[in-house]
Design a protein around this nucleic acid. Structure first.
Length: 427
RNA sequence: GGUGGGGUGGCUGAGCGGUUGAAAGCGGCAGUCUUGAAAACUGUUGUGGGCAUUAGUCCACCGAGAGUUCGAAUCUCUCCCCCACCGCCA
């Protein structure tokens, strides 16, 4: 959420941001709503002041055992007018509030303007392997090795769910442990294990709601949602809190399953593990001082890259253009790992800086140490960031397809072997 | 799921229709004292919003929302949450 004051004073900038995202939003209407809100407030607060003064007088009269009837009846009219104005406010404020919730974050000025074709390769790592045979897809590999059962997963749940089996299940668990260990031991993150169900307030705070409700799995009898990413519960850890500046920056990492309905993307990438409704992911979330957030973003990307480097998977870092940027983000890098079997670059991580956008929605602030001469500490919104470190299903694709051998077996990347009980190969 | 008890400022905890934005204590900050620290003493110490933006001034907020009243932290209703015990259960 953007600050209404900011929108009022920088309407040009905000309109430009909306345009760069190729969205249609009536910013002038929001400013008009704010104007009428303030106009009502002006009269209302004047009348309330009058009321408060009259109350004091009535109290004084009653104390002196004098007659206050006249004063009391004169206030009835004022009270009624106050009631009318309050009713007007109750019309305006929710409308303004919901309009504000639909204004996206402002893209950072460093982003290329335009659609997906403007996506920029920032850097690449690793070389695509040269095969002396025709590489096959992860679907064929996993069937042959009997490590993923897509058919029975459909029977149990629905299409695009996954049943890992044997060393496939072991590989999934190994990846999760490997990533969590890396981020906690090498990158300074604290591990958390949050709930996989969250309430509406949490979903709104990180920006999934109200816009993306149809993309979420929701429970029928409770106003709860299955999380689409650990970003939601982890960022909400500090909702409505004021943090001490000395505690910043806070780095959390979490493994969770992620649930996405993927409404509207039917027909796209429906084969195998590319786009599934439930997948595992290790996420990194940061709460930082505003002045440091762009440095923190670069470090976050490096932390995610390290995972792919240790797994020996060739990848490229992409800077997302304005139209590809998610609603809450101001800058975002995607990591794409190459999968030779399906010959595709797979998005396995998204690392974003949200600046104060989520912090304002979630009301996450911190107390700055008072500068010399200042008596009181200033209270400010933190900046939040998060990035996948990394998403599993697609990483499994990349591992299977990059490490496949001519005989159909798959070599386990060295970094994972300690987590696979020393196993070096699936066959 | 059932029964009972609660939700007041950073914390503990008074108030239960009329100078109560809220006693008291603790904590925090600043100062006095001290070589320094502690103790003691003094002062100060919530958030959001409107107008003005230098000073300031006004409004709102005692879990959330609605109601009664000239006036609500205080009375009524609805909801949410917490605690205890019972039931069920990995």
């Amino acid at each position: 959420m953007l600050d209404i004051k900011f929108i009022r004073e920088n309407s040009g900038l905000v309109k430009d941001a909306v345009k760069k995202r190729n969205l249609k939003l009536d910013i002038d209407n929001i400013i008009a709503l704010d104007n009428s809100r303030r106009k009502v407030l002006l009269e209302l607060e004047g009348l309330r002041q009058e009321k408060n003064k009259a109350n004091d007088e009535i109290t004084a009269l009653l104390k002196q055992k004098k007659d206050a009837k006249e004063r009391i009846s004169s206030m009835k009219e004022v009270s009624q007018r106050i009631g009318t104005l309050e009713a007007e406010l109750k019309e305006i404020e929710p409308e303004l509030e919901s309009s504000l919730l639909n204004v996206p974050n402002i893209p950072h000025s460093s982003l290329p303007v335009g659609d997906a074709t403007k996506k920029e390769v920032v850097r690449s790592w690793g070389k695509a392997r040269e095969f002396d045979f025709q590489p096959v897809t992860h679907i064929e590999l996993s069937q042959h090795l009997d490590i993923i059962d897509f058919g029975r997963a459909t029977k149990i749940t629905a299409s695009n769910f996954v049943l890992y089996k044997g060393l496939g299940a072991r590989l999934e668990r190994a990846l999760i442990n490997f990533m969590l260990d890396l981020h906690t031991k090498e990158h300074g993150y604290t591990e958390v294990f949050p709930p996989f169900l969250v309430n509406r307030a949490s979903m709104t705070a990180t920006g999934q709601l109200p816009k993306l409700e149809e993309d979420m799995y929701a429970l029928k009898d409770d106003d709860l949602f299955l999380i689409p990413t650990a970003e939601v519960p982890v960022t909400n850890i500090f909702r409505n809190e004021v943090l001490d500046e000395e505690k910043l920056p806070i780095y959390y990492t979490a493994y969770t399953a992620c649930f996405r309905r993927e409404a509207g993307s039917y027909g796209k990438d429906t084969k195998g593990l590319i786009r599934v409704h439930e997948f595992d992911k290790v996420e990194m979330v940061k709460f930082v001082q505003p002045e440091t957030s762009y440095d923190e973003l670069e470090k976050l990307v490096a932390n995610a890259e390290k995972v792919l480097q240790l797994l020996g998977l060739p990848y490229r870092v992409m800077l997302l253009p304005t139209e590809d940027l998610s609603f809450s983000a101001s800058k975002c890098y995607d990591l794409e790992a190459y999968a030779p079997g399906i010959d595709t670059w797979l998005e396995v991580s998204s690392c974003s800086n949200f600046e104060g956008f989520q912090a304002r929605r979630a009301n996450i602030r911190f107390k700055r140490k008072p500068a010399a001469g200042e008596r009181r500490p200033a209270v400010d919104y933190v900046h939040t960031l998060n990035g996948s470190g990394v998403a599993l299903a697609r990483t499994v694709i990349a591992i299977l397809e990059n490490y496949q051998q001519k005989d159909g077996s798959v070599v386990i990347p060295e970094a994972l072997r300690p987590y696979m009980g020393g196993i070096e190969r699936i066959n």
